[in-house]
Design a protein around this nucleic acid. Sequence first.
DNA 1: GATCAACGCGCG
DNA 2: AAAGCGCGCGTTGATC
Length: 578
Amino acid sequence: MPHGYITTAEQAGPYVAALAACPVLGVDIETTGLDAHRHRVRLLSVAAPDGRTAVFDLQTVPVAALALLSQVPWIAFNAQFEWRHLTHAGFKVPLLHDAMLMDRLISHQLRPLAAVAADVLGIALDKSLQRSDWAGPLSREQLDYAAADALAAVRIGSALLEQVNQHQQGRLYRLWRDAAAVLAELSLRGHCIDWDAHSILQAAWQSEADELQVQLKDAMSGVNLNSGPQIGAWLTQHLPESRIEIWPRTDSGRLKTDAETLALSADLPGAQQLLRYKTVTKLLGTYGNGYAKHRHPITDRLHPDFSIGFTRTGRIAASRPNTQNPPRQAAFRQLFVPSAGRVMIGADFSQIELRVAALLSRDRAMIRAYQQGRDLHRLTAAAIADVAPDAVTKEQRQAAKAVNFGNLYGQGAKGLARTAWTSYGVCMTEQEARQALTRFAKAYPALTVWKREQVKAAQDRGQVCTKLGLIRDFDVQGTGYLAGEAVNVPVQGSAAEIMLETLARLPQMLARTGATLSHSVHDEIVIEAEADDDEAAAALADAMRAGMRAVFPEAEALGLAGADLVDVKRGQNWAEVH
DNA sequence: GATCAACGCGCG
DNA sequence: AAAGCGCGCGTTGATC
């Protein structure tokens, strides 16, 4: 039950004064919808650690009357939501704790508020009013519900803040908390898209898809080209039984119909058109209409959600739409443009996961390569082919890239031979792949030992962790295959921590320049700035190197955080700065 | 009509 | 016995 339901600025005064004297406040909002640009914050519920609560009706209480509340830190649950809505409503959001992230780091799972409240506080939270009508007259039950969530947030947060430290997760928690605010800001600001060019591209894809469908009328009449099972049936009809018998199968036993497998039937009439059709319809669905339907009616931008703590490695995930996987083709990347009158600056971490692997394993050969500014792929190629680095051919270097990256993921000989061909255009027999892996292991002995230790940790202790201590649990009954994740989680996860450290310090480092974050994709950051802003470009590179040093302080002395760590480009759109 | 699993594919 | 990691999302087809 709320101790106060406040509907005027005059009423707010004493409550605000009393609450602002608390060391920390639980906050929760009720909104008329999920979209901060379109929907309104109806209620701001605030709870003190001692249990006093106040529910402010923002329909009538001006935000200015609540300014004092921003003098103390807040605790929310899934704080990005509060950050976006309250910032948009005109609040100066203070240091904002997120009890959801605290719980994620302690329980190793992302759980809804009710589940955490049950676990941590031993209380049952009734969430049935969550999606009730928050625009009209409010019932007593709705006010109680609103106050209860704020109270739960402050109680859970206060309890878990201590536990986070006890679990050695304080550092990582603060990083997630700070990065979350930056991502909330990015989501609220959104991506600027050249929609005219987008429609033209979409139309071009559409007409190509139509054309291909006509061309395939004869060869594949009656087959739904979007249906794997139907294409499988068509293959069964048109290929000799001997080939169907050895055709690769899906987990459920059906014929595989992905592009790589379909290449096996390149001789069939229509096969080429079918492959192209699949590509074009993917673009059309996911990046044509898939993007258009998220075009914001007010801002005319894309406003994806960026989540922290959702992934198993600590990477950021983007959704609705996922703007972390747009096609690389320039025709599409150039749709991402800066705001009017500004320019884009993009920078990516060079070979960040290989550098991380070098730092985690302390492999001297790898570290020396980066120290001396040498090309690690070339070095690996030399080791594999048993030639001098200078004698390495282009094709050998391509093969080495496949080996280097595959090794970060626990890839075997068969998989290496496959990806060498499909991703790097290099033909490698399984035998050659096996030898390459052996020679790689010999060339980087410390990395090999480290990888073995990770697998052992996964098997014996049931967990591995990243540099800053994010724990990945494994359900090990007997002998599951863990080589892949056991090695990859620390590598991918520590690289993600470098990105988060960079994002967390970016606003401050860009503040003087007026430049703003425009996008981030795992190892790449894009900002927009005033034209010809050298200072912004330098600040971006500085922030990225600082991010690296924050996670790996030793990187500096080892020569892995030098100027070649980041590659900065400037241009008028994402295609030009990528 | 809504929901879900399976599959395939875009990215790092 | 062998197995490359991490995501989000569109479509199909089965199910309730």
